[in-house]
Simulated scan of single mutants.
Amino acid sequence: MDGGGDEGQQERHLVLAHKLFLLARPDVDDLSKVALRAEVLDAVKSDDMAPLFESLTASGLLEPDAALLAEMRGRIDEETRKLDEKIVDAEENLGESEVREAHLAKSLYFIRVGEKEKALEQLKVTEGKTVAVGQKMDLVFYTLQIGFFHMDFDLISKSIDKAKNLFEEGGDWERKNRLKVYEGLYCMATRNFKKAANLFLDSTSTFTTYELFPYDTFVFYTVLTSIISLDRVSLKQKVVDSPEILAVIGKVPHLSEFLNCLYSCQYKSFFAAFSGLTEQIKLDRYLQPHFRYYMREVRIVVYSQFLESYKSVTMEAMAAAFGVTVDFIDQELSRFIAAGKLHCKIDKVAGVLETNRPDARNAFYQATIKQGGLLAEPHTEAIPCH
């Protein structure tokens, strides 16, 4: 867990954030939690994260230890005093760039020990002493990392806007490309999967944001968001045939089958791969809040694709294609038809599905009429895949 931001090295506080997320999950087994608790405590101790230690003991995730807390607090006070001395020395004896460096060092120290408000305040002070656009951008990236650690979406959103404004003054392509991945992650974490997919796809060949996550995790997110956002032609062109994605998709269990079985209409294998991926989606701190929504959206995509080939099809044939029971398909489709998500109707007596896809003009007219109603439509809960 040493360092962060080097190539291939995830920022250590984001590694810690994922462990904290797993530690709080009821579906992680107790034995794993014993190991996680030890790793979290090591991380907290190695960075003197006194504020985090206090909140973790208050919530019962770690055992209270007054002596340890006092030691950490003592070291933070001592180090802050030294950093302040360096700032005074730089102001009295050195130039502007050294003053900025001394303030930046204090900002990074507050980030390290997990003093969120002090870190943000100190980053603002450092920004006031920063002239170069690239260096200002780097301060925004530090702020974004704090935002993702705390899942502070307001801070993330404001920082992304700030970064975009900075780019109007200049800024290099490398940082612009990095920002796309940060914004994509924000969009995914706030359920804007379509925008996330577009931003991720723009970054597959320029990815350098190892501080956020490894490249195979990036590909996992790209495939997941693309499947529910792109039409078949775009999916083939941008994802199925992408050399960058092909190079690593095999590293993520079930992901290649999930993508390719959907594209090649092998629905039974697709569902098997999908159920294999559900655990990984559930145990991802950015995706877990959208788990049910995502499960539902994927099934709408796959049922729509299946039904597109038919004017009418028996329920039995569809159930057989998906490797599920007729009852299951009946329940699933009834729910999606009622919600206006699938264009077909069920003839219960004949056991047949009739598709009634509206033509483009009619669809546009219907969409215009229903726009207000659709926004207010309640989420239907997902049924777990069989």
Rank of each mutant, 00 (worst) to 15 (best):
Y186R: 03
M188Q: 03
M188V: 00
T190N: 04
R191F: 13
R191T: 06
N192A: 10
F193T: 04
K194Y: 12
K194R: 07
K194H: 10
A196C: 04
A196S: 12
A197F: 04
N198W: 14
L201Q: 06
L201R: 07
T204S: 06
F207V: 05
F207S: 13
T208Q: 02
Y210R: 01
L212K: 12
F213T: 09
T217D: 10
F218N: 02
F218W: 11
V219P: 03
V219T: 02
V219N: 00
V219H: 00
L224V: 05
T225M: 05
S226E: 01
I227R: 01
I228P: 03
L230F: 15
V233C: 09
S234K: 13
Q237R: 08
K238N: 02
V239K: 12
V239P: 14
V239W: 06
V240L: 12
D241Y: 08
S242R: 03
S242C: 13
P243Q: 08
E244R: 07
I245N: 03
A247N: 15
A247W: 02
I249C: 05
G250D: 12
G250S: 13
G250P: 05
K251N: 10
H254R: 08
N260S: 00
N260I: 07
L262S: 09
C265P: 05
C265A: 11
Q266R: 15
Q266S: 14
Q266W: 12
Y267R: 15
K268M: 10
K268H: 09
F270D: 02
F271D: 03
A272M: 01
A272E: 15
F274H: 06
F274Y: 10
S275D: 13
G276S: 10
G276E: 04
L277Y: 01
Q280F: 14
Q280G: 15
Q280W: 02
I281T: 08
I281W: 12
I281A: 01
L287S: 11
L287W: 06
Q288P: 02
P289D: 09
P289Q: 02
P289G: 00
H290Q: 05
H290N: 10
H290S: 12
F291G: 06
F291S: 00
Y294K: 02
M295K: 08
R296S: 04
R296F: 04
E297T: 10
R299P: 02
I300E: 06
Y303L: 14
Y303H: 11
S304Q: 09
Q305I: 08
